[in-house]
Structures are given as structure tokens and as C-alpha cells.
Simulated scan of single mutants.
Amino acid sequence: MPTNAEIIHRALDRITAGYVFPDRTSSIDTSIRRRLAAGDYDGLEGPALCEAVTAHLQEACPDKHLRLLWTDEPQDLDPATEDEGRSAFLDLLRAENQGIRRFEHLDGNIGLIDIRRIACADEGGRAIGAAMELAALSSALILDLRACRGGAPEGAAMWCSYFFPDDQVHLNDIYDRRTDSTRQFWTIAHLPAPRYLDRPVYVLTSSLTFSGGEDVAYTLQAHGRAVVVGETTRGGAHPTARYAVAEHILVTVPTARTISTVTGTNWEGVGVAPDVPVPAGDALDTAHRAALRRLGA
């Protein structure tokens, strides 16, 4: 079992090598090493160590994706088999129905899809399509992202693609530090379910909505395709890689940043601001009433 110092050194090495803003890594490294030398992490183990280091990382650099994570599942520490956390994330998605908790048909022929994770487009595409197939004949649709904790950029682009008529909409870009390249995300040409066009769409958010969930909310809002109802989201816009630094501890390193083609920026640190601000617990009723009014029901 590595010592706390070894865990922290490994994490800082990963951050220095991969963080999307390299000019900030020196101050992060200095701050955490100073706390380590001062004994701030003495006696801390497991989740408590992760919590303390995460708080200090985000104090040194306010990026909510920059953190240590405890995982009950043992992680492979062999760099040769490292996949930046993708296998664990795919296993999680499989266990959670590709992030889709439920579909409900509300009064007034309004569909509701409860999304807890944004699945990868390849493995999750059929499940996303199945949910949109159930919603295909509704008169308005509500996407509930209040408990969505994140996911894959490709999956976010797939969800968004259903609300545009073709593959000609440039949704956003992601700049990757490791490759010094920018990847463009456009609407997808071929989808496994009908597109959802010319009907109202509402997106529900909370202060817990994060990362990939924020991507869907921000992108649909920026492109004028959905009304966001609820609370300002957590504010994490940087795609991350996950690296094992101990058998049960991962460091998440933001290696890229999202750039909206509409706003030229993203929701990092500020969150997605709702069009209709209401407490998260009231968001569904508020959106449902708004949809009924808009439909003249």
C-alpha cells in the first residue's frame, strides 16, 4: 500500500503532465506539496484523504473536475493496461441502463426522460434511441437532468442531435492539451430513432447537474432549442482522464476544454443558468405547466 506522500506525488505528476491549463500546474503543485510537508494529510486514509486533497486542489485551482476519487473497486496500476478510466465508466453505464432511469408519459401528451448519466454514443446509442422512440409521438418533451452527474461528450452530442433536423449543426468544440488538437462536435446524420423537431423541449437542472449533463443543457439552451428550468448547475466543463494512483484511489485530470460555437466559451466555474429559475424540487411541475400552456392545453 503506497504512503499518502506517494499517492499525492503520483497525482501531482499526472496533473502537471496533463492538465489542460499548463500555466496553472506550478501553483497547484506548490500548494499541495506545502500542505503535505506541513502534515495536513497525516493520519488520513481512504475517502477522508481524497476529500481533503480534493478540497485543497480546488482551492488552489477552482476546477471541479480536479480531484481525488475513492473507488471500492480495485484499480489496475499497470500503465500498460491503463485506459484512463474508460472500462470502469462503461461498466457503470451498463449497470445503470446507460444512464436512463425512466420514461414517463405525462398528462397532456408530454414525455419525460430521466437521465442520470450521459452514455457513450457507441455502446449507449441504442438505449438513447429507445428512450427517444418512446418520446417520438409526444407533443412536448422534458429532459430531467437534475440528478445527471456527467458522462461522455459523444453521448451529449447524440442526445442533442435528436433536436435538430440534420447533421449540419456545429454544436461545440473540445480542445485537447495532450494532442494540441481541437475536435469538432456536429449533429449526427443517422440516429436510431426519429428526430424530435418543431415541438417544445424543456431541460430540468439542479445544483447537482454536472459535466456531461451540463453539456446537454448548455448546448440546447445556447442553440435556442430548449428552455432550461431549475437551478444553476455545478459548473464543470472540462473533459477528464482518470488515473489510478493507488489501488482504490483515482486522480481525475481535466485534459481538455469545451468551447461552444454559439457563446465562444463554456460553463466552467459558473454553471448553466436556467431560463426559468426555480428550486430543483419544483422544476418538473413548472416545466409541465409551461408545456401545457404552450400547447394550449
Rank of each mutant, 00 (worst) to 15 (best):
G264R: 00
C61K: 04
L57Y: 04
T182W: 07
D215I: 06
V245N: 01
L250T: 00
R102F: 06
S31A: 09
E59R: 05
T209S: 08
N4G: 14
A291V: 09
C61Q: 07
G151W: 02
T182G: 03
F185Y: 15
A5K: 12
N172I: 08
D180N: 15
I128C: 07
N109K: 15
P279F: 11
G99Y: 08
A5R: 14
N109G: 00
R10C: 06
Q221C: 12
G213K: 03
R146K: 14
C50E: 01
R33E: 12
S26A: 07
A131Q: 05
L36Q: 07
I100D: 00
I249F: 03
D282S: 11
T232A: 07
R33A: 02
F103S: 12
I188A: 13
R10G: 09
E104D: 14
G296N: 15
L57W: 01
R94T: 10
R116L: 06
L68Y: 10
F185N: 01
S161F: 05
R126M: 14
L137G: 08
P22C: 11
E82M: 04
R195L: 04
R24F: 08
A241W: 04
M1N: 08
S138T: 15
D285F: 02
A290E: 08
D63W: 03
G212K: 03
P254E: 13
G269Q: 00
A38V: 01
N266C: 14
A17G: 01
R34L: 12
L112T: 13
A226Y: 06
A37Y: 02
L284D: 05
V169G: 01
I259L: 13
E154M: 06
A256I: 02
I249K: 09
Q184R: 12
A80N: 06
L44I: 07
D122L: 11
E133L: 14
Y243C: 02
L77E: 13
Y175A: 09
M132H: 12
T233D: 03
I8Y: 04
R234S: 09
H170S: 08
F164R: 03
H238R: 14
A136G: 03
A5I: 11
R10L: 15
A130K: 02
A140M: 11
E214I: 06
P192G: 07
P47E: 12
R242E: 13
N172S: 14
V201M: 11
V228S: 09
R34D: 11
V20A: 04
T205R: 00
I118N: 04
M132S: 01
D114H: 14
T209Y: 11
G99C: 11
R67Y: 01
V227P: 10
R149W: 11
L284Y: 00
D282W: 03
S207A: 13
I142H: 01
P74R: 13
S31D: 11
A119Q: 05
M1C: 11
I259R: 14
D285C: 04
Q168E: 13
V53K: 00
V276I: 15
F210R: 02
